[in-house]
Design a binder for these strands. Structure first.
Lengths: 224, 224
DNA sequence: TTTTTACTTAACAATTTGATAATATATAAC
DNA sequence: GTTATATATTATCAAATTGTTAAGTAAAAA
């Protein structure tokens, strides 16, 4: 199973924020919210979402401005952006699409429609995006199920690979043991306490590199 | 620039057909039109469009039915489909997306919006599919159903050929067993667990070359 | 009809993987 | 420094996965 996709929602109406947050969380997405343009930019930089839902009309920088600013930085070149627009102002819609938005949704919004669109966007996006993670000397190619260490291929078993890919998907972030269990083993399967350790050990052994560090009492993190 | 992309538009309202045709033609697309569901299917088979714009409400098979029928044939597995829906009938929209549509547009339509969406979709989908795949010493001609190995023709049975062509369509990518089953056998047919293995074995045998590698617990990939 | 070909399945061998138990080691708390 | 707790390490074994061969079936070709 892959990592939960992150979505940032920016809207000045509290109701909409809550409705969207609730519905998208129920689909398994990880959500952050912002109440205005400036906050949206700030949160985007911290949260690094895969998708940003931007209301066009917001105080302190509108959605289009936010989109333009974010798109300038290479970090957000490939981030999906959906605009939320109050009326069917055609000019705005077009402008939005040309700014680099990937879709737009007209208010009043319907939770089901939004969830559908979001799912569809990710489905499509998954196909085109290259799932390669590069950190330092390590290159993790989820499509090829390959790990390259200084150009040399290292062969990991499935669980090992998935575990490494999970940790490396967000270098620096500490993954709780529970998080790891949920992501790799799912909620149904129950495995013993030492299972994660053993897999971690095998990864360390095979990579011969100290890139996974233990945070005692908490979990593990990937770092160079 | 490559060959003009082909778009089939199916709608029972003459006005809409004309407006869309005019606008999309102006963008350089090659257009075919249909006035009802049956005609849409017929034209699709002849015209082999890259994108189909389907009105939901049409006489003789509605858009969803057309979509379902087309998606059954592997020829249209990767064709883009956009639904055109009259009112924001939420249920229909959802159903459409789950049927395999890639997007939907709500009437009343705006030519500009549609052109934008179409352009955006193609931009995203721009994975040029060549009928001939060349990797190393191997040449796979999907049109002629022929495999050449170092200039020598190798004769593969149909399933073998399709399997090889699928794997070779993206060298390096690991295809999950499920993916393979869906692509080659379709969702309806159910075959045993060892079927894929046996075909893989035959391909390996006939090619006498180690170009398909197993990723245990995951699937197979084509590599030189 | 007979023969050939393509496809699928069954059965078993070979291999790999994943989980656990048992023990050792490190780290934090006292 | 000692104790308690968490993690590391290793070996072992069961389960899951794939490889291989042979054989059966149905459709196409001769």
């Amino acid at each position: 199973m892959s990592v939960a996709k992150k979505i940032l929602i920016a809207d000045d109406e509290q109701d909409i924020l809550e409705i969207l947050q609730f519905n998208l969380q129920a689909e398994g997405y990880e959500i952050a919210t912002a109440k205005n343009g400036d906050e949206a930019i700030e949160k985007a930089r911290k949260f690094i979402p895969d998708l940003i839902i931007l209301d066009i009309m917001m105080p302190y920088k509108n959605g289009i401005e936010v989109c333009n600013i974010l798109r300038m930085s290479p970090q957000f070149k490939n981030t999906l952006i959906i605009f939320l627009t109050a009326m069917s102002d055609e000019g705005t819609e077009i402008k939005g699409l040309e700014t680099g938005a990937d879709d737009f949704i007209t208010k009043p919004i319907s939770p089901k429609v939004i969830v559908s669109k979001v799912n569809a966007l990710f489905r499509r996006w998954n196909k085109t995006e290259t799932p390669i993670i590069k950190v330092g000397d390590i290159e993790i190619d989820r499509e090829r199920y390959m790990v390259m260490l200084k150009g040399e291929g290292v062969s990991l078993a499935r669980k090992e690979f998935e575990l490494l890919a999970l940790l490396a998907s967000r270098p620096g972030k500490v993954f709780l043991r529970n998080e790891i269990l949920n992501q790799i083993w799912g909620t149904e399967v129950i495995v013993g306490d030492r299972t994660i350790d053993v897999h971690i050990r095998k990864i360390r052994q095979k990579l011969g590199l100290d890139c996974i560090s233990t945070v005692k009492g908490v979990g593990y993190k990937f770092e160079i």
